[in-house]
């Protein structure tokens, strides 16, 4: 399912955060949203998960207008979300938490069908958390919790997956493991990422945001050039190839750095 953002403007309490964002996410691709703090990545994502209504512009999910054509419930059949605020209530078990992913599919009386049970178990297995299904989320590590929230999104069975900086506060291993799971899920994915190196390694295409504008969209190798990164992120960068994986690899230094002569 493709995602189209057309001329979206977003404001919180009359302060415009996103001025004009346009981007098209092709079916099946992993699409990164990168940009400095305050560039509007999270705000744009909040609009995609229907928490913030655009002041102008449209968001289309598979051709249907997210705000005009789709109810909150039907929107949840099309896109699932891993947010940054997912820490509020940890008193639920892993299984109960993942089962919340079936909320928009439940009947009037909120009962679970057998199909729901199966999908919930499968989602927990997919992120490798079956061993902890009966544990309280509060007893898990940050990386494990994030996997549980990913499982909840997977259980939603939506073709589009949205993630807001899912690797925050995770250790290196957990970061790579989570991004691997996101890729393996095989869904149309929009992920806001702080780490440009992760974005370069994981995303098929990235959109760079600056000051509430979507500046450019394209394959990481084409977009994440030294000139653009220097301009947008105000750091010096070396673009190379990862010696182990062969993927695009970025290393950073302060702008004031004078490059050493190659030896």
């Amino acid at each position: 399912m493709n995602v189209e953002v057309r001329g979206v403007r977003l404001a919180i309490d009359d302060v415009v955060i996103v001025h004009d964002a346009t981007m098209v996410v092709a079916p099946g691709e992993v699409h990164g949203l990168v940009g400095p703090n305050g560039s509007g990545k999270s705000t744009l994502l909040r609009c995609l998960y229907r928490a913030l209504r655009p002041a102008a512009g449209t968001v289309l999910l598979g051709g249907a207008d997210l705000w005009r054509d789709l109810s909150a419930r039907v929107a949840a059949h099309r896109r699932a979300v891993v947010t940054q605020d997912a820490t509020a209530d940890l008193d639920f078990t892993v299984r109960d938490t993942v089962a919340m992913g079936r909320t928009a599919h439940g009947g009037l009386f909120g009962h679970y069908a057998q199909e729901d049970d199966r999908l919930v178990d499968a989602a927990i297995a997919e992120v490798g958390m079956t061993w902890a299904a009966r544990r309280m989320v509060a007893t898990l590590s940050g990386g494990e919790r994030q996997r549980v929230y990913l499982a909840r999104a997977v259980a939603q069975q939506a073709p589009v997956l949205l993630l807001d900086e899912p690797t925050n506060h995770l250790d290196v291993h957990a970061q790579l493991e989570l991004l691997g799971l996101v890729r393996d899920a095989g869904l149309t994915t929009v992920v806001a990422l702080h780490d440009l190196d992760h974005a370069a390694a994981v995303c098929d295409r990235v959109t760079v945001m600056r000051g509430g504008h979507a500046v450019v969209t394209g394959a990481p190798a084409d977009v994440l050039t030294p000139a653009l990164i220097e301009d947008v992120f105000r750091v010096r960068v070396h673009v190379g190839t990862h010696p182990l994986t062969g993927a695009l690899h970025l290393t950073f230094a302060p702008l004031s750095t004078t490059p050493k002569e190659p030896t």
Partner: peptide
């Protein structure tokens, strides 16, 4: 009681609840 599942979802935060298909404001 019919809305119990939505009430559970509401405790996880507005953004998560929106993502799971609850119109939080309504």
């Amino acid at each position: 009681v019919v809305r119990g599942r939505w009430m559970n979802v509401m405790t996880t935060g507005d953004d998560t609840a929106s993502g799971l298909g609850v119109d939080t404001n309504r």
